[in-house]
Computed example of a mutant assay.
Amino acid sequence: MRYFYYVHTGHRIGLDRFHRAVAIVTELQKEIDITLLCSDFRIAAEAKEFGIKRSVGVDLVRNIPQIAHHGDKIIFDSAEINPTLLEDMTQFFSTFIRISDDVSDTKHDKEFLISPYLEGEGICKAVIVNERYYEALPKTIPLSLFYGDDDYEKDLEANQSLFAPLHMDLLMGFYHFLGYDNALKESFKTIYDSESYDEVIRKSDILVSGSPQAVLQNLISGGKPIYLQRVDYTNDFIPLFESLSIPIITELSQEQLMQTINKAISNSYHTFEKSNTKVIEFIRKTFNL
């Protein structure tokens, strides 16, 4: 019997779920041999740089049983789920833990659930962010933008005139195109490559980001995040961010950008309970470790 963590990630959806996976897997691998299954081969190859001991790329979610065996245990971090797949997965794995961000989700009677919204038997209500972001750093970057790890349609280039007057720093994404910074350099004060992710997220006083995980990371680092709701991203995090008093931009316009940044300066943010230990204990109990 083996342990797996499947995470849906890639150049069309970014690394939000992967960052969450890192927070969980790096803790679990201290006591069990667990394999991270990534839907993107590039990040599977890079996973060691994030502290992951064992990772494998998986083309399709339906290919998981080609790697795992019947009776193994898995944590499933993906929105790819549907009733048929959920039924198949809960029958194939002896223990199936799913992570959901959907406020309207419901729990299958044969699964366990981790959610920022739901409560009940077999459910762990929690928000997961890597431990290192709880260590605040001096806010040496007044205003920065992290659009997300992916920008397949080159939205940043198309809308850079909106950001130019704000004199923001820009953090490039993991999946951004080679040389993409050359097309953006006139519109941002400083451009950081993706390897500076941790530094920029933790040192930004005000961070505008389309990445839900980056918003949470900046918040617990003592920053003042603003969530930019991208049209190509799910809006599952809106209720959570509203409960935390995180300003939300729903329309990419210069007027809304300016108004929301001004609001963030004096905004009274709420914080959420640190629950990583709670999540790990829930997984340990569920896996009978």
Score class of each variant (00 low, 15 high):
119 E>D: 10
183 A>I: 11
171 L>I: 07
134 Y>M: 12
110 K>E: 14
253 S>W: 12
5 Y>A: 02
95 T>S: 07
203 K>P: 01
184 L>C: 05
277 T>C: 07
284 R>Q: 08
29 Q>F: 04
131 E>G: 06
81 I>P: 02
99 I>A: 01
189 K>P: 01
236 D>S: 14
76 F>S: 08
263 K>Y: 09
7 V>F: 01
4 F>V: 07
268 S>P: 05
143 L>P: 08
254 Q>M: 02
53 K>P: 00
43 I>G: 03
173 G>V: 14
12 R>N: 10
156 L>K: 02
80 E>M: 08
270 H>K: 15
259 Q>I: 11
263 K>M: 11
31 E>P: 02
251 E>M: 01
146 F>G: 04
257 L>T: 09
150 D>Y: 12
137 L>H: 01
170 L>H: 09
35 T>S: 05
211 S>Y: 09
239 P>M: 12
270 H>M: 13
178 L>R: 12
190 T>D: 03
209 S>R: 12
155 D>I: 13
70 H>V: 08
32 I>A: 04
284 R>T: 05
129 V>C: 02
218 N>W: 08
43 I>Q: 02
130 N>Y: 12
59 D>I: 07
165 P>S: 06
215 V>Q: 06
67 I>M: 06
103 V>D: 13
251 E>H: 09
60 L>T: 14
97 I>G: 00
100 S>R: 03
209 S>M: 09
184 L>D: 00
165 P>T: 08
239 P>Q: 15
36 L>M: 14
170 L>S: 05
160 Q>F: 13
276 N>K: 05
2 R>N: 13
158 A>N: 06
220 I>F: 10
79 A>Y: 15
203 K>V: 04
250 T>V: 05
106 T>A: 13
174 F>T: 05
265 I>L: 13
167 H>I: 04
170 L>P: 10
47 A>K: 12
107 K>D: 06
169 D>S: 13
192 Y>D: 03
73 K>I: 02
263 K>T: 11
77 D>I: 00
36 L>P: 00
233 Y>R: 13
289 L>Q: 06
289 L>C: 09
126 A>Y: 07
83 P>F: 15
63 N>K: 15
103 V>Q: 14
